[in-house]
Design a protein around this nucleic acid. Structure first.
Lengths: 332, 332
DNA sequence: GTGAAAGCGCTAACAA
DNA sequence: TTGTTAGCGCTTTCAC
């Protein structure tokens, strides 16, 4: 079955093909009777405009790209990416765009692939997640002329970023631990990713601990379960256990909790443990995890809106950080 | 900066635009010197073929769609969907396709949206996951002429399905429980999704239990954490606890484990618990979850290959079920 | 209000 | 081996 074209519709309705085009694009000054006739021909022939032709003629790209890092532990092990993809897709579709996918690595090849897709007009811009994005990569992308919105990741000089208010989340978390009598806090967080939101969290952590007059230290991690587990094992081996361990995300907190069980530590008796994200599974851990909820989906929708606005040539302001909320359960 | 076109390259190289096209498409019978000249013009002008024009002219769609169900608990709460998306993207890109995203619901609107995208040539076919896909929906999609490959879900009459060997996984699991001395097995699994792989697992479960001469029962769930939790609470309330609880997926097993902690049951002492999937987080539960590993990523690659082959008009055979493997940890 | 002409960037078919 | 012509399906410009 060969699909109907604009001309077929025109012939069927007994008008010229531009008239059909005008009807389709809601142009004014079309006689209602003509419009009716055209519309009924359209549905009679089950006509659907060819996107490729439209895109070619209008020199417009209607596909956006969601790029994340393939080997980033965040990318594949958390519901995180799913939530974001769903929200981005919904917002993009609602605005007449479709959403393509890309997984980046830290080699030239993957950046080059993205570049190809942009220059070939397969994609019009990208939303990127992943604290592994380096400033140099970001610069490369924008140097092609591509619009890029960063989700949940700051980089020096990146104007279009959607993020959450990690600072106040961290302050609330520290206050909570202190209110429960904790006096020796350890934060597990990656810091090799300079410029990322991790630094903001770390700084707020130290500032808040200082304000409360409690001890604070930082242990390096890499967002993975294993690094959370390792962090607690090392603290234990050092003989200088804190009384609260703050995971920089839910996964590291989960890993630490697992290590605590292995060491025979009672949580929260011997040690309080908290997370950051609030993914589904953390309320099924034992004990149920106290954490900070980050509104990933709303942030993603905003990122899509921002990208579309940029792509349409509007000038945009980065939205303020999204509020987060402390979710108190049993682990801290 | 306005991008170079085929004509610009032709002018720069002093040949006709057709010659450039021939060089690009690897046509034979081009004099090496000409080819060299054209290639150097291409890189001098940083020329990239316009995909929209190519697609229009060739009447070819180079975008595939990955569709899943928005409100399906599997879709957003597991790493599952991420793994599949990554694998599909990799395979599609490797074969020159890009991958778009769709989230379906159970209303007419979302099916219609997919139909639009297909008829507008925005997508050339779809890989669909989700046991919530109904036979009627599948029939609708194929009635448009769209190629559809189902991932991990059987439906009566669907020829193109990629799945895993759940039957033998279930047999191995039952044998394992029995070998550890369990004599009273309960399986939590949704069965309202007729036609899905759930039925295969359930049937194998009963068959295997019978073969071993142990008691077997089935409790309904809906794949979610909460339903696993509920299942164990109900069993406990009935006063007739099994000595092994088999979660139909890792999430239900996790929910049941959480309930066991709440009830003060020791796992695996009082009760063995096992899962199905082997997602990252289950090895950080307490106790670490025994489960069956399903090769989601490989299956997804195969689904992409199958869809591309179908789209190219080849006739394809559904591949045999992928082997699964029992992963023994501490919970059973 | 509606139609005729032109052309987006590319490739298939032929001519040279 | 290369160039010319035509046209994919659509929208824009401008007559009528």
């Amino acid at each position: 079955m060969t699909r109907a074209t604009l001309k077929d519709v025109a012939a069927h309705a007994g008008v010229s093909h531009q008239t059909v085009s005008n009807v389709l694009n809601g142009h004014p000054s079309i006689r209602p009777t003509t419009r009716e006739r055209v519309l009924s021909s359209i549905s009679a022939l089950d006509y659907h405009p060819n996107q490729a032709a439209k895109a070619l003629r209008e020199a417009r790209v209607t596909t956006l790209c969601f790029a994340s890092f393939e080997h980033d532990p965040d990318t594949l092990s958390d519901p995180y990416r799913n939530l974001i993809q769903a929200a981005l897709t919904a917002e993009a579709n609602a605005q007449g765009y479709s959403l393509a996918t890309a997984f980046l690595a830290h080699d030239e090849a993957s950046l080059d692939e993205l570049r190809q897709r942009y220059l070939q007009r397969s994609i019009g811009g990208a939303v990127i997640i992943g604290t592994r994005l380096q400033a140099a990569q970001w610069e490369r992308m924008t140097s092609w002329g591509m619009n890029v919105v960063l989700l949940d990741h700051f980089l020096p000089g990146t104007p279009h970023t959607v993020s959450a208010d990690y600072a106040s989340g961290m302050r609330a978390l520290v206050a909570h631990h202190v209110a429960r009598g904790r006096r020796d806090l350890a934060l597990v967080l990656p810091t090799r990713d300079y410029g990322s939101t991790a630094l903001m969290r770390r700084d707020s952590f130290f500032a808040a601990a200082k304000a409360h007059g409690v001890r604070a230290r930082h242990i390096d991690g890499d967002w993975s379960y294993a690094s959370g587990e390792r962090a607690l094992l090392e603290l234990h081996a050092s003989g200088d256990l804190p009384d609260a361990l703050l995971g920089g995300n839910d996964r590291m907190a989960t890993g630490a909790l697992s290590a605590a069980h292995g060491l025979g530590l009672s949580v929260p008796g011997d040690l309080a443990i908290s997370g950051f994200d609030d993914f589904d599974f953390v309320q099924y851990l034992h004990p149920k995890l106290t954490t900070v909820r980050v509104p990933h989906a709303e942030m993603a929708r905003e990122a899509a809106r921002l990208l579309i606005a940029l792509t349409s040539g509007e000038d945009c302001v980065t939205p303020p950080p999204y509020p987060v909320s402390l979710i108190v359960r049993d682990s801290a």
